[in-house]
Nucleic acid binder design. Structure first.
Length: 271
DNA sequence: GAAGACCTGCTA
DNA sequence: TAGCAGGTCTTC
C-alpha cells in the first residue's frame, strides 16, 4: 500500500529515530523469501557488523547505504511497514547498536529486501522520481505523447515516473480533471500541464499528512510509531465511489482500468 | 494488453 | 465464503 508519500514518511521517521549511524548487531529473518538474492543466513552474515550510514528514498524504494559499500534496497510492496517495537507479522528484526531494534512487518509477505553492490542496477530501470527536478513537464509531456496508451496505467508505470500508486494516481487524475481511460497522446498541452502539476501536488500533500491510511484494520499503512497517516481527509476520489464529487457534486463511480480498481468523476473528468 | 502468481486478512 | 486490497513480476 505504501506509495511515494508513505515510503518518504517511513524513511524520514527512521532517520528521526536515529537509525542512521547505528551498527547492525544481528538480524533475524522470519520469512526467508523477503531477502534477495541470498538465503536468510547469508543475508544476516552479509549485513551484520555494517553501519547504516544513510537512509534515502527513490520512488517507492527505500535505500539503506551500508558501511560495507553495499546497499540494502527495501520495497514495501502492498503491506510492508516498519516499527521500533515488536508486533505481529514481524518478518525481519534488525538489532542495532545502542539497544535500538527495527521491526519490519508485512502481513502479505510481498515486500522485498534486496542487498546489492550497485543500486543503479535497479534504479536505472525507473523513470525520474516524481518529486525530483528531473521529472519535468517537458519530459512528462514527451513521454505521454510518444505513447498511445490509457493515461492511468502510464502514470502508474514506474519506468516512466517513479512513485505513484493506485491511490495517488486516482487523486492526480481527479485533481487534473482527466478521465483515467484517456489515451495519452490525445491530451492537450493544458491537460498535460494540469496532470503534471497534480501529480506533484497530491504527492506533496500526502507527505505533509504523513501518508494515507484507509479503513481501521491492522493491515493498513501505519507510520513508524503505529499511527495512521492523516491524508485520508484529503482524498477526493480513491475509495469514494457512490459519494458526491467534491467539485461538481455528481456521483463518483468505480470501474476497472488496466486491472486496477479506479474511482473517478464521470462528469468533471472529461473523456 | 490481459491474466495469473505471490500472500493474508478484512468486508460484504 | 467470495471478493477485494495501497505492487510488481512473469507468461502468454
Amino acid at each position: 500500500m505504501p506509495e511515494l508519500p508513505e515510503v518518504e514518511t517511513i524513511a524520514s521517521q527512521l532517520r528521526a529515530h536515529g537509525v542512521e549511524g547505528k551498527e547492525i548487531r544481528s538480524v533475524k529473518v522470519n520469512w526467508a523469501p523477503t531477502v534477495e538474492p541470498y538465503s536468510a543466513a547469508q543475508f544476516a552474515e552479509a549485513v551484520t557488523g555494517s553501519t547504516i550510514d544513510q537512509i534515502s528514498r527513490v520512488g517507492k524504494w527505500m535505500l539503506f547505504s551500508l558501511s560495507s559499500g553495499q546497499t540494502l534496497m527495501i520495497h514495501l510492496r502492498m503491506a510492508g511497514s516498519f516499527a521500533m517495537e515488536k508486533g505481529s507479522h514481524d518478518r525481519i528484526v534488525v538489532n542495532l547498536s545502542d539497544g535500538l531494534a527495527l521491526y519490519y512487518r508485512d502481513t502479505r509477505k510481498f515486500g522485498r529486501w534486496k542487498l546489492v553492490d550497485d543500486p543503479q542496477t535497479i534504479l536505472s530501470k525507473l523513470g525520474p522520481d516524481a518529486l525530483t527536478r528531473q521529472f519535468t513537464l517537458r519530459y512528462f509531456s514527451a513521454a505521454m505523447k510518444k505513447r498511445h496508451r490509457m493515461i492511468k496505467p502510464l502514470i502508474l508505470d514506474q519506468g516512466i515516473v517513479a512513485g505513484l500508486g493506485n491511490i495517488y494516481a486516482d487523486e492526480a487524475l481527479w485533481e487534473a480533471r482527466v478521465h483515467p481511460e484517456r489515451v495519452s497522446d490525445t491530451l492537450s498541452d493544458a491537460e498535460l500541464e494540469r496532470l503534471f502539476k497534480a501529480i506533484k501536488h497530491v504527492l506533496k500533500i500526502g507527505i505533509k499528512n504523513r501518508g494515507t491510511s484507509l479503513g481501521d484494520g491492522k493491515t493498513n499503512y501505519r507510520q513508524v510509531d503505529g499511527d495512521s497517516g492523516e491524508n485520508r481527509a484529503e482524498v477526493k476520489a480513491y475509495g469514494k465511489s457512490g459519494k458526491p464529487c467534491s467539485r461538481c457534486k455528481n456521483t463518483l463511480v468505480k470501474t476497472v482500468v488496466a486491472q486496477r480498481g479506479t474511482t473517478f468523476c464521470p462528469v468533471c473528468q472529461v473523456v
